[in-house]
Amino acid sequence: MSAPGPLLEVAGLRTHFFTRSGVVKAVDDVSFALARGEVLGLVGESGSGKSITGYSIMGLVDPPGRIVAGSIRLSGRELVGLGHEEMRRLRGNRMAMVFQDPMMTLNPVMRIDRQMTETIRAHERVSAAAARARARAALVAVGIPSPDERLASYPHQFSGGMRQRVAIAIALLNRPDVVIADEPTTALDVTIQGQILHEMQKLTRDAGAALIWITHDLSVVAGLADRIAVMYAGRIVEHGRCADVLSQPAHPYTRGLLDSVPSRNPRGARLRQIPGMTPSLAALPEGCAFRERCPRAGPACAQAPAMQESGGRGVRCHDPLAAVAATAGP
């Protein structure tokens, strides 16, 4: 992850929303780096800022939201502060996003072929026939049967799983370097979810794209991600290699999340739960945001903890469960 500098580097990103009831710090000092071919699982519950992190990278934050600080570099090029036209050239071309609801991507009154060729021809001068051939190949790649017929269909003629495949095909049309997937399988059935994960895994591997997989479901990232970053109340509270974070969580919140998963508890026993609920981002308490729900909270937690990094692993806690900082593993 160090050879020629990372593909995507996010440093000190802060995206705030200036609402009537105050400033909502949706993303507050988020940093991570991503290498080519790497899969990052960005995990958090609703309101943790994981989706806004994705939107910020894509330049899709609308007022009253604004990136107030930090930098986002794609192959060394700074994206924060780029103009609309320059961002438009990157979006759908070098960076693409797959949304939870495929109808965010698809235009309901436009045939699939038009939507797909438009995506290609917005970024490249190719003939209509060549664009159509590429669109067809993309549909085949995501496992859509009878692609010629499907190209001439409208989105409402597809099932939910098929629509999500089309959305993924569109995202991958221009072979982007970075794909951001925002819970694309959450609304899908188990067997369809397996198919989509299979396709995404294959496509990122073949194309060498970096993938950010945003989810609240630890069981999805466990099998997919190389690295995991856990977000809570706008901040990354823990990050590291997938296996390390899941087998030896350092932050009490990560531990709590893992413990609440039913399959990690003896059948029929009470689930180990995290007390309380996620705090409102508009009225965050001073100090560590997790303090009021944390079983290990002490007087030190009144001060916001800094990220302690070591050996590719980081935790934002005064009293971590696993010693990450001082005695990093060999």
């Binding site: 895994q201 479901d217 466990a222 997919l224 998963v261």
Partner: peptide, 24 residues
């Protein structure tokens, strides 16, 4: 069996997702 195979687990093990063919 297909349903159970589709269930993710939080065991940190890279796995290939082997899908059931087709849709409902």
């Amino acid at each position: 069996r297909a349903l159970l195979a589709g269930v993710g687990s939080v065991e940190p093990r890279k796995r290939s997702f082997a899908p059931v063919r087709g849709e409902i």
